[in-house]
Amino acid sequence: MRVVRGLVGLAGVVIAVVGVLKVLDRGSATVIEALKWFVGGTLLHDAVLAPIVVLLGALAVPRVPTWARMPLVTGVIVLGTTSVAVFPMLTGFGAISDNPTLLDRNYAAGWWALAALTGLGMAAGCWWQRRTAAADGSSTVPGPATPAPADRPEPPVGRP
């Protein structure tokens, strides 16, 4: 196992160095611009997108009944990640006036259709989860199963 890991790691280092050299070979202007995108993309995720998702999860999930949580999380993952993946289509920044065959769909309508389908799926998931919970004879009462936010402890921010 150690030998395999060593060989895989060594191959990885060699391949990554080859890649870095290929980038450097493109000249300083490319390197600087690519670095901006490297750092910018990571910052956009780590400092903006991820904290927003974590915060929304912390705020929203405790406020929904337990039987609605998995459908809610599923819906958010489906619609959220798809929206990120199709961001260039939704914004249409690449559209060219002399080429009507590029980006030739109504992407906003597509997004609303997906959002509606996701909503229906979430509703169906909630119905199923609630029915299953009722069949189990437990926790069928809708409403927060966790303490209200006011009862919750303060987050650790600033705690020594």
Binding site: V8, G12, V13, I15, A16, G19, K22, R26
Partner: peptide, 17 residues
């Protein structure tokens, strides 16, 4: 093309670790 090598190389290192 160049950065693809960086991704695969660093992925292999990550897998090894």
């Amino acid at each position: 093309y160049a950065v693809a090598w960086v991704v695969i190389g660093s992925l292999l290192v990550h897998i090894a670790v």
